[in-house]
């Protein structure tokens, strides 16, 4: 089965115009007013966020139109840029892990390539830019969150369980053996969010891809089929990302002589 991604006839009366977008800013004004009235101090942040989202998304819109209008070869570049940006973000969230940027790059790109590869090989989705870019972006952002979580969780757990890890090392265990309980719990914590959201999908919130398709006029069942593919794809993607990030991070937090790295040895 190949999912049809293009649909016709939006349920909204014609396409959303820039004028409509401008009118929807009135809701931002309401939020800013509430912030000012309740002294939340969020007015400036909200204004910046509104302007940023406008500029970023309009730019993305133009880029995607360009790619979709027969410049499909740019797809790989676009996915590469997304993977790069995600890796930088992930690195920033796990600064205390040595080589966190390289680990994030490896985990996110392997997760993305493997997951998209399976979807394409099984012919579940077409390899067109219209399919690869949005699906890729979802995999990348899921993999990014998982990678950040796994890296920082491992580092924190190794620091707070140093005594137990070093007791295991002292008994002649390898660094892999000595860190196994914490690797396992880091992998679990990296994958649980996508497992949980897969469990409650449709009960707590209608997910993005499905909402978008329904708004665009697709039948609910077609929207549901796409959403199921997206959920299962995200499960697979986060599993790949957690596994790669977990093993690479563990490797970087020990020396070749099965010692914790120096920054962790000195933790009081």
């Amino acid at each position: 089965m190949t999912l049809t991604l293009a649909t016709s006839g939006s349920v909204l009366s014609g396409p959303v115009t820039l004028g409509d977008v401008a009118l929807s800013v009135s809701l931002v004004a309401v939020a800013v007013a509430i912030s000012a009235w309740q002294r939340l101090g969020l007015e400036a942040d909200m204004t910046v966020a509104t302007v940023r989202s406008f500029v970023q998304l309009i730019a993305v819109g133009y880029v995607l139109s360009y790619i979709f209008s027969g410049h499909g070869w740019l797809t790989v570049l676009a996915v590469g840029v997304m993977v790069g940006a995600a890796s930088l973000t992930s690195r920033g969230r796990a600064k205390l892990v040595p080589w966190s940027g390289a680990i994030a790059l490896a985990a996110i790109s392997i997760a993305t390539a493997a997951t998209l590869g399976v979807l394409a090989a099984l012919r579940i989705v077409p390899t067109s830019a219209q399919a690869v870019i949005p699906l890729g972006s979802m995999i990348i952002s899921g993999a990014m969150n998982t990678t950040s979580l796994v890296m920082s969780r491992l580092r924190d757990d190794f620091a707070s369980n140093r005594r137990e890890i070093e007791a295991r090392l002292s008994l002649g265990q390898t660094s892999r053996q000595a860190s196994r309980p914490w690797l396992r719990s880091a992998l679990r914590s990296g994958m649980l969010p996508s497992v949980d959201s897969t469990k409650v999908v449709g009960l707590v919130a209608l997910p993005g891809a499905m909402t978008g398709m329904i708004l665009a006029g697709a039948s609910p069942l077609a929207a549901v089929r796409l959403q199921l593919v997206v959920m299962y794809m995200l499960l697979g993607g986060t599993a790949f990302a957690a596994l790669v990030a977990g093993h690479l991070t563990t490797g970087r937090l020990f020396t070749d002589s099965h010692q914790l790295v120096k920054s962790l040895r000195r933790v009081p």
Binding site: R163, E164, E166, A167, R168, L169, S170, L171, G172, Q173, T174, S257, H258, Q259
Partner: peptide
């Protein structure tokens, strides 16, 4: 000591910490 395999060295030289660790 760096010429020994670390795992082998640690089996021969057993270090016990200040606070006992139970697994």
């Amino acid at each position: 000591v760096r010429e020994y395999d670390a795992l082998e060295l640690r089996r021969r030289v057993q270090l016990v910490g200040q606070m006992p660790v139970t697994f």
